[in-house]
Every structure is written in structure tokens, then in C-alpha cells.
Write a protein that binds this DNA or RNA. Sequence first.
DNA 1: TAGTAGACGCAACTTTGTTGCAATAAGCCC
DNA 2: GGGCTTATTGCAACAAAGTTGCGTCTACTA
Lengths: 140, 140
Amino acid sequence: MISDFQEQAKAIIRRTGDRVTPGRVQALAVLLAEQRAITHHEIEERLLDKLQLDRVTLYRVLEWLSEKGLIHKVASDDRVWRFRANVDVHAHQHAHFKCTCCTKVICLDGLNAARDWPLPAGYRFQEAELTVKGLCAECA
Amino acid sequence: MISDFQEQAKAIIRRTGDRVTPGRVQALAVLLAEQRAITHHEIEERLLDKLQLDRVTLYRVLEWLSEKGLIHKVASDDRVWRFRANVDVHAHQHAHFKCTCCTKVICLDGLNAARDWPLPAGYRFQEAELTVKGLCAECA
DNA sequence: TAGTAGACGCAACTTTGTTGCAATAAGCCC
DNA sequence: GGGCTTATTGCAACAAAGTTGCGTCTACTA
């Protein structure tokens, strides 16, 4: 199962035309295996078994993956970036849910945050970030 | 004009029943004078002329003001808290606008973020944080 | 298989925020 | 106004998240 994600990750990265390195493959594989947005630290923990990657390198890998549009970053109120793989044409314009109990973050794909919100005169819309907070099914 | 905000701040703080200290008064006055959400650092800069307040003390003052419901915190994608005075019955449930050019943050009071967003089964809504990004009138 | 640009590892640094503790001062009572 | 009490402040040290510089290594290309 895990190796599935590795192969998938490898293929996705090869498609960019840039270098296929173990760090990129493993980091993306971890994110593909995960069904939610996780932090740099959580990714690091999941990597430890198969590959020890420098903290800094992981930051750079995540930035690269993000630039290439293979993953996306989620801002949270605990001032920690979370990352999630862009499965298929996973639009960036969607909402996130954060459990206030276990701090788990999931994507609310059904909720489109891209609509044009009413802004003051002269303002120009680019994108919206919507985070809904509450309790997840396990914590409720 | 500035002293107006100081007097206003003093009165608001006195109303809480807790101690009225220079740090609390000046910090709240700065936020009352500002029409938008600003960072700890920006508040510190504006304080420097009239009152030199320790960095840590300012953090604690802001936390206290927030606890008392006199100001509110805004999470942003640059992992920095921003603070804004709660003028009148300024509800916490509203959206914020962040200019991607000058990083200025304003409150979109007309936009209610408190509506019940559709969540997966078993999930419980508590609150929503909506940040719309784009260009403000000056930068557009 | 050799050369090269790009990726990596390490160390040091920055920013943002927190914690512990001793010194200080705001409000209260007289 | 003057002392008492307790909340607030300032200082120093710490912590987490992320960045920068630089020399070394390695994935690709030829």
C-alpha cells in the first residue's frame, strides 16, 4: 500500500520534468497517503522510518512541491503551516475544517470558497481562505 | 485626537473592574485609533513615542484585552497574530480582508462568517474564520 | 562514466511567542 | 497622604517554526 503511494509520487514528480529525489518522493508519498492536511513536523515523523531527511531539506521540498502545484499549504490559527497533496484537479479554492479538540485538519471539498465576496469599492478579489472550526466526529 | 482615544481606552478598561495600567490604556488606545487589525510589532512601534513597554508585557496586555473581549485576534497566513479593537458590539464572527500587496488587514463587517457551514456527519460547528485576499484600493 | 546544475546537510540565525521569578505599582483601607 | 496586598511589569532565558549561507553530494544529460 505504502509503496503504491511511492510509485504514484515518483510518477507525479517525474511529470514535472525536474529531478526525482528520495526526499521529494517520500514527502509526497506521505502526503498522498494522508487524507488530511498535516504539519511539517508530522511529515517529518512519518518519514523517520524510511528516510531521514534534514529538517531544512523538508522545508525546501515542501516549498518546491507547493510551487509545482502538487501540494497546497493551509494557514491555521496556531501559526503553523499544514500541507496536503493536490489529488487530481483538487482546487485550491475550498474550505478547511479544524477540530478545536484534537487540532486535526480536513478539507471541506464540497464547500467552495472561491465565490466573489462583496468587497469595498476599489478592492480586488484574488482568493479566499475559509476555516471552519468545531469538533470532529471523534471528539464530538 | 490621540488623547481622545486614551480617555476612551481608560474608560473602557475601568469598566472591566480590573486594574487600569498605562500599558493597557496605551495599547488599547493604539488599537482604537487604528481602523484595522495590526500586529504586535506594529503596536509596539506606535507605542514607542509615548511609553516604552516591554515586549512580553505587551503580549500579556494583548492577551488580557482579548480575554476581556475588548479586542480580538485575527489569524493570518504569515503566522502572525493581528489585533483589532472591538468597537461597540463588534461581533467576532465576521470576515477579514488581507491585501496581498501591502499586507494590510481590514475587517469586512458586512460579511457574516457565522453561518452554519455544511459539515460531514457527526461534526459540530463552533466558529468560522474567513479571510478574503486580494488588492486593496491603494494597491489595485 | 564524467560533468554539471540543482539538491542536500549542517550550522547559525530570525521571528514570534511563552515561562519563571523577582521587583514594582494600582487600588483599597485607614 | 501612607501603608498593604496582590496583580502587573521587566528581565532573562527558552521554545517552536521557519530561513539563509555555504560547502558537499547526486540525479540527470550527454
